[in-house]
Structure formats: C-alpha cells, structure tokens
C-alpha cells in the first residue's frame, strides 16, 4: 500500500487514488470508462485542492519528484484531463467528437 500513498497532507484524497495514472492514455481511458457522475465526484473533490497540491509539489525539482509526489502530480494531471468534460461539455451528449481512444498517444 505504501507505493500507492499520496503525500501526507493529501492522504484524504486516497479514495481518488485510482486516478493517479502516469500516462495520458491511461488517464483518458479512465475518463472514458467512468460515468459523468464519477468524473464529477473526482473533479469536485480534487480541483479545490489543486492550488495546495501545486504549492506542495513546487518545493521539489520537477525532474526528481519522490514517488508520493509523482502520484500527486499524476492526480493533478487527471484533473486537467477531465476538466473539459466537467467545465465545458458537462454532459457526454454534448460531445460531438470521435472516440478519444482512436488517438494514439506517442509519448
């Protein structure tokens, strides 16, 4: 379980730890596999903490984050990943686009 841990000030976000995904393709797949309600619950819980999360992460060099901090960054990147859905589209029916899974991400 230790490998799954978030930094201590953000331990309360553990129920959303499944969103701490390293690769964009994984974050996109998670968004696609979730209901809008689940996505919104994640966004509503983590978005208000983003400023504090970034303030915490800024204490470390970006290229040398420890494992809990790396996971915290991935969590923040997942909030970015879902923000168009929660802030702009709001409903899946509003999306008029190809499946994001057709976009092969090469990182």
């Amino acid at each position: 379980m230790a490998a799954q841990a978030l930094p201590a000030p953000f331990a309360d976000l553990a129920p959303h730890g499944a969103w701490a995904l390293e690769r964009e393709a994984e974050r996109t797949a998670k968004r696609e596999a979730s209901t809008v309600e689940d996505v919104r619950a994640f966004y509503d819980a983590v978005f208000p903490r983003m400023e504090a999360m970034v303030a915490h992460l800024e204490r470390f060099p970006l290229d040398a984050l420890r494992e809990p901090e790396r996971r915290l960054l991935w969590l923040a990147l997942s909030v970015v990943e879902v923000s168009n859905l929660t802030e702009r589209y709001r409903r899946r029916e509003a999306i008029r686009a190809v499946s994001p899974l057709t976009y092969r991400s090469v990182q």
């Binding site: 800024e58 970006l62 923040a76 990147l77 970015v80 923000s83 168009n84 686009a97 190809v98 994001p100």
Partner: peptide, 26 residues
C-alpha cells in the same frame, strides 16, 4: 517546463487542443 505549475499548464493546453481535434476528426 521548469516547474510543476508550468507542466500542468502545458498539459491543459495540450488536452484542450486535443479535444478540439477530436471534434475536427469527426
């Protein structure tokens, strides 16, 4: 990116344009 805030900002811009492009693909 030389700090976390910049990295997140770049991710945001990329995701926004990517989602626009997925509307273009259709």
């Amino acid at each position: 990116a030389n700090h976390v805030g910049r990295r997140i900002s770049q991710e945001f811009f990329k995701c926004l344009i990517r989602d626009v492009q997925q509307e273009d693909s259709i």
